[in-house]
Computed example of a mutant assay.
Amino acid sequence: MPVSDYLINNRWTAETPDVLQLYSFPTPNGQKVSIMLEEVGIPYEAHLVTLADADVRSPEFLSVSPNNKIPAIVDPDGPDGETVALFESGAILIYLGDKTGFGLPKSGAKRAEVIQWLMWQMAGLGPMFGQLGFFVKFAGADIEDPRPRERYINEAKRILGVLDTALEGKDWIAGDYSIADIAICPWLNTLEFYGAKEMLGFDGFKNVAAYSERFNARPAFQTGRNIPARPE
């Protein structure tokens, strides 16, 4: 089915329907896919989907992303020439890794290791850091009971410790640069935005701090971190 036949195209119209369509917002989960697309260099068209219910709960967006979360893609150049529509940032990274051969070994123990750390980010680091942000910076910061805040501070410290240990003697989490790094590092950058680095003792996690700096220096991060561009 061509991109133009998808319901989402009625709201976010593809100007170049023969290239991959990205529906996203530059949060850490959205950045994963835009950074990956910049790394692999395949043509794509980015559409800004705000986090407002009017966008993410619209019938058009739900037709591709039924969990009403960014990012999502529609790729007219899928396997066997079929169009592929996907939601969930981790699933999209695996799809793009398999499609391009970048950042994801085709088979064997190294592939399993990359997927292991990708799942660790999806199930642990991302959700826990998101809760940390809620209780430190957003509405949860007004809750008087200190226990929720302390829980996520302590869990974030534990997660940083896991990552710091795993990075000992390595530049990248699975040895070679991979989709796991693309998943993990945008979430590390949220700690600055949350104002949480000092309370977590971030600089004491030397391997993590150096890892984050290496990732942020990559040209694909510098470009992809604000695609589609955040509204002024």
Rank of each mutant, 00 (worst) to 15 (best):
F202L: 14
I73Q: 08
P127V: 07
E45M: 07
E192I: 03
V3D: 03
F61V: 06
E39D: 13
A156T: 10
I143V: 13
Q131P: 09
I35Q: 05
D75C: 05
R225E: 07
G224E: 12
Y95F: 09
Q116A: 10
A85S: 13
P186Q: 07
A156K: 05
A91K: 09
F129G: 06
Y44K: 11
S178R: 11
A217G: 12
R230W: 10
F205W: 07
P186V: 11
N154C: 08
L51T: 03
A72V: 06
E144W: 01
P105G: 08
G90I: 14
R149C: 05
L188V: 00
L93N: 10
A14N: 05
D164W: 14
M199V: 15
P66K: 07
P146G: 04
Q116W: 02
A141L: 08
L191R: 09
L86H: 10
L7A: 14
G78C: 13
G133C: 12
T223N: 03
N226M: 06
I42W: 02
N216C: 15
A139M: 06
P228L: 13
V3K: 05
A139F: 01
E150C: 06
G201F: 11
L37A: 02
M128R: 00
A183K: 04
P17R: 08
G130K: 01
F129R: 02
R214G: 12
A166W: 05
K99L: 13
N154S: 10
K32E: 01
D171Y: 03
A139L: 09
L118M: 04
R214M: 11
V64I: 13
E38L: 09
R151D: 09
Y194L: 13
A229E: 15
F205M: 02
P17Q: 03
A139Y: 04
R147H: 11
G41I: 14
F221R: 04
G201R: 02
P228G: 11
A52T: 12
